[in-house]
Design a binder for these strands. Sequence first.
DNA 1: TTGTAGGCGTTATCAT
DNA 2: ATGATAACGCCTACAA
Lengths: 323, 323
Amino acid sequence: MSLGSASKAINAPAAVREKTRVAVEAAVRKLGYIPDASGRALASRQSRTVGIILPTISNVVYSAFVHALHKVLAGHGYPLFVLAHEYDADLEAAYVRELIGRGVDGLVLIGTDHRAQVHDLLAASATPHIFAWSIDEAPAFNALGISNHRAMEALADYLISLGHRRLSMITGAVIGNERARARVKGLEDAVARHGASLATVLEMPLTIEGGRVGFAEWLARKDGATALVCATDLQAAGALDQARLAGVRVPQDLSVTGFDDIEFAALLSPPLTTIRMPIDQLGHDVGAALVALMQGGAPFASRELHTGLVVRASTAGPVSSPK
Amino acid sequence: MSLGSASKAINAPAAVREKTRVAVEAAVRKLGYIPDASGRALASRQSRTVGIILPTISNVVYSAFVHALHKVLAGHGYPLFVLAHEYDADLEAAYVRELIGRGVDGLVLIGTDHRAQVHDLLAASATPHIFAWSIDEAPAFNALGISNHRAMEALADYLISLGHRRLSMITGAVIGNERARARVKGLEDAVARHGASLATVLEMPLTIEGGRVGFAEWLARKDGATALVCATDLQAAGALDQARLAGVRVPQDLSVTGFDDIEFAALLSPPLTTIRMPIDQLGHDVGAALVALMQGGAPFASRELHTGLVVRASTAGPVSSPK
DNA sequence: TTGTAGGCGTTATCAT
DNA sequence: ATGATAACGCCTACAA
């Protein structure tokens, strides 16, 4: 029996006589043969693989997304390779290169703000790809996500409707991150629209610790704000903890909000008022859209998914001004 | 100029004349050339890549580990490909196959309990690999982690020293998971040693929701336990939340414990008594050991890392028996 | 249905 | 220091 027949027996068992198929299967088992993906990819020009490049794997909101995405992709026989660049735009570009060089059939990127080189690489290689998460500053095609701007406006509207007139914010670094930018902008716009004021905007790491440090710094400024808006639930969790340590009562002395509605948001004390990211739906839709693209579908018009305001106990009307 | 020279200019810039190097660099930039990893892997027999296969990406304790591991591997120029099998042993084996087929230079697996096929694959391909997390039921070589058994004994000793005589446990599925097994066994052994008793052991998913359901079921049994030991912080978080809903006061009516000491453990209410996993150290050590292996080092004797008991407010002596 | 042969993009060997 | 050439393992025509 020839090499070619063996190849066929493995990849198209139907196009081969039962006898040779069985023979090949036996040999495979006996020899512990594992097809070499490199040879296969080289010859067939495809890898049956999709990659996703995350800002970080340490924020559960991203790992929850990977989880949801994984489910639909695995159903189509695509293993999902995960890479994290830790908010380093150059590293992200390097990873895009790496993955394209590896011949991934599809690629998922988070957000819409990437190095120009990333777009060049994607275009030159014609790799099917999706920009997931955000439609702020989105290209006309292949972006699937929420409007961070609108979501934050809705949150601000709510706080202002409670009677807050002076707000402050802890955000993440805005360069290279349109989500952070749009959240700040949404808050600014809502505040301006209502004639309220934005006292302080602090840039901190998008982590629990970042929220802790941000809260401490905000407190030291005594800026008179009665509500503290955080760019993520992680930061809000840190801020809440630091508030407790500092003796600032939430929500009596200060309202605190997050963004994402991670599972832990409801378990904090007090439970966190936040914006719900439709993570499962996003994972599902991105997976489906990517599969369509990989099967030769045309680029799709950028599509918006909707968020919701989740009111819990970390917000209330202002009564006394905080320390 | 020949193809061979171009290859050298890219991979060993020092072994080539400055002039040709510059020429190649210019051409690379001009053409937007990306080396094809398949061809490269095929010819060189190595991929400069390492893979890690996780039980799940949804438990922060694993993503924190990936984060730590990533840091040391990236420093050596190895991108880390992450796969998650969601506690499906067959899928894990398939992924091992997949990664070996892809020619990863190194592989990290979680825990020591894997399909026999996994060990065969690893041996046949001579892929450098490490079993991270646990030394329970560990092979003599290449395992690096904690003793779940001893850690749980220490926790149980502590609870019993508080005066608890009747304990119950929520664990994860124990088949295919030596960590869950060792944690149950550690509790059983400590209880037996002190002449205390283990009222109920419930197998639940290793998630927040699993903890919620487990708590509800435990409560319905009215088994008289005064302390509820959970196999992970995630389960404990769910149990705590469900206790609050059910009006069971922690720690007055019931002590609750976790395992892992994830960042959120300190932010729950009440803050969780738990076992600290030395995640950063584990990530660092596993990374260093794997690099050594990939550079041709000999297999290393399995090594134990140490855990610590973290006492917070979710535990206290038994006063009244719970509802 | 099966065998044969060429080539995928890269590196490695060996002369030059 | 460079150029030619033979692999690497697999797939895919195409011929038998």
